[in-house]
């Protein structure tokens, strides 16, 4: 990263900022990030969620709860949780699921695994494809850009949600015939695959637009003039300057894909029972807005907290990485 920023750093030193010149950009970025106390808290929240997701079985067995155990005794004759606030009790800290009496906390913890898995993997796939395609397309221009552009157009032209639903069964069947284990594994693979097929386009569009502007900029022209090869320019000059928009996209994408998982679940493409996912919980809980409002809010709040954390961290990272961030604002 140090050399990556060198040309931009040169530009900066021509202006007012002299005091921080002695530190490397990476150190600078870390220092900037550490100054943001909110961001540190947010990072802690994300790590906490991740740890909980990874060690879900351990945590649940320590707490003595299970996401699958039915508890009919916790339900009244209507199948609704006994007691107030959705059946919150010593045995069930966040209450029980209406209809089955399963422990909501345990399902939330286990559900985090599926949701985070889908969110992270889908983001990884779409962002990786999107960056590569976008940079190549924007930098190469000409025929390459035209061909990629047509593929992009074709992908964008399809109503993605509709296709995701329509293609579920045939593609999952195909995947299973390729030896991917049936059940939830093939469903997760399908969801990530189909989100990848449709999702890269948005990243690619943004990256391409940025690349188009960047390649006209002085430092890229300078690199070209000094005989730098395409790959060098792409990786050393363009990529570093794409971090900001990409990070914004990623921080929005992860929670966005977690939400997509729940929408697919709402439309009947979710995990198979008895597996828990936040999407399934959100979809189920909205039906109890009147009968069991506690249940309605618990998965929603869990999701909102995660998303807010990602946003705060995303912003902080973006501000920290952006070497121009500290400069005086014109407004």
């Amino acid at each position: 990263m140090g050399t990556a920023m060198s040309l931009d750093e040169d530009l900066i030193t021509t202006s007012q900022q002299v005091s921080v010149e002695s530190k490397s950009p990476r150190e600078l970025a870390i220092a900037r990030f550490q100054r943001d106390r909110l961001a540190k808290w947010a990072l802690f929240v994300i790590v906490f969620y991740l740890v909980v997701a990874i060690f879900a079985p351990l945590i649940c067995s320590l707490l003595g709860i299970s996401p699958y155990a039915l508890d009919g005794k916790a339900l009244n004759d209507f199948g609704l949780p006994k007691g107030s606030f959705g059946g919150i009790s010593g045995a069930h800290w966040l209450g029980v699921e209406p209809g089955t009496g399963r422990d909501i906390l345990a399902r939330l913890i286990y559900g985090a695994r599926i949701s985070m898995l889908v969110g992270f993997l889908a983001t990884l796939v779409t962002t990786a494809i999107g960056i590569i395609v976008g940079v190549v397309s924007g930098y190469k221009r000409g025929m390459v850009d035209a061909v990629i552009g047509r593929i992009t157009d074709l992908t964008l032209a399809f109503p993605s949600l509709l296709l995701m639903i329509a293609l579920t069964r045939p593609i999952i069947q195909r995947l299973e015939s390729f030896g991917i284990p049936e059940g939830n594994t093939s469903r997760i693979v399908y969801i990530i695959l189909i989100l990848g097929v449709f999702g890269w386009v948005y990243v690619a569009r943004i990256v391409r637009g940025q690349t188009l502007s960047l390649r006209e900029r002085e430092f890229v022209e300078a690199a070209r003039a000094s005989g730098a090869g395409t790959w060098r320019i792409v990786f050393k000059e363009l990529m570093p300057n794409l971090w900001a928009p990409v990070i914004v996209t990623v921080t929005l994408a992860i929670p966005g894909y977690v939400a997509t998982e729940s929408t697919l679940s709402f439309l009947g493409l979710g995990m198979l029972p008895p597996t828990a996912s936040w999407g399934a919980m959100l979809g189920d809980s909205v039906r109890y807005y009147r009968a069991d409002p506690t249940y309605l809010f618990i998965p929603g709040i869990a999701l909102i907290v995660l998303v807010l954390a990602f946003n705060v961290v995303g912003d902080a990272v973006r501000d920290a990485l952006d070497p121009k961030g500290d400069r005086q604002n014109i407004a």
């Binding site: 699958y68 155990a69 699921e97 089955t100 639903i165 493409l269 029972p273 008895p274 399934a280």
Partner: peptide, 24 residues
């Protein structure tokens, strides 16, 4: 989905396994 969870749970106790097949 809940009914299936109940089926899976109760069959499991008798050593019978259920493979859920969702019709979207």
């Amino acid at each position: 989905k809940k009914a299936l969870a109940i089926w899976i749970d109760s069959m499991g106790k008798a050593g019978i396994k259920i493979k859920p097949e969702a019709v979207g």
